[in-house]
């Protein structure tokens, strides 16, 4: 093994030849740079992946239809995001605002209407959870990444995707980013977020 490493890795490619591994690294770097060019240079969205679990929700809410097909802004429904630390789930009346007329024949909408007529809100399951000792505020993050940068508000979903992944491609939301401390801290480091423990720990 050691011998192999010595001969294959150092001797053979010692004189300027491209090593397959370094070539691969370079390609990955280049690719990741290309994919991240959609954003201005001042923001470096966090990387990282998480293999989330499929969460069963009372109604299988299709984010993709709302966002991709109908082009509804995230903050139209998650209206508290820019005013509070939590983004919030829209009141059921907001759903019914459209769905009194739209797509009333679909089973999911009928289920929603049932809730509405019973006078109940569906009990959604929380997908993106941070530990209870963490203080996270949507308001400040949106301010930094959207409003302070004059980022077009209609594209806010790209900013949401930093932490929530491409919700626009999902039906029911699924956690695809680790949302753990190392991940948060990494992004804070890159983008000049606060490094003070007490900023996020309560």
């Amino acid at each position: 093994m050691v011998q192999w490493i010595r001969t294959r890795m150092f001797r053979k490619y010692a004189h300027g030849a491209f090593h397959p591994v370094s070539l691969g690294v370079a390609l990955i770097l280049a690719w990741s740079m290309m994919t991240s060019t959609g954003f201005a240079a001042d923001v470096q969205p966090p990387g990282g992946v998480h293999k989330g679990v499929d969460v069963e929700q009372p109604i299988e809410f299709p984010h993709n239809i709302h966002v991709e097909v109908n082009k509804i802004n995230c903050m139209y429904c998650h209206t508290y995001a820019r005013r509070s630390k939590v983004a919030g789930i829209p009141p059921t009346s907001k759903c019914m605002g459209c769905h009194k007329i739209i797509a009333t024949d679909k089973p999911r909408i009928q289920k929603l209407t049932e809730y509405w007529q019973k006078g109940e809100s569906p009990k959604w399951k929380k997908v993106h959870d941070v530990p209870d000792f963490v203080h996270f505020t949507h308001e400040r993050h949106l301010k930094k990444f959207v409003f302070d940068r004059d980022y077009p508000v209609e594209d806010v979903k790209e900013v949401c995707a930093f932490c929530h992944g491409q919700i626009k491609e999902m039906t029911v939301a699924k956690k695809v980013k680790p949302l753990n401390m190392g991940w948060c801290a990494g992004c804070h480091e890159k983008n000049g977020g606060p490094g003070d423990c007490w900023k996020c720990h309560k």
Binding site: D196, C197, H201
Partner: peptide
Amino acid sequence: TYHTPDGLNAQVYNR
């Protein structure tokens, strides 16, 4: 427990 930029002695409970 550490010193914050606000001059407070922070106590990070989860640490």
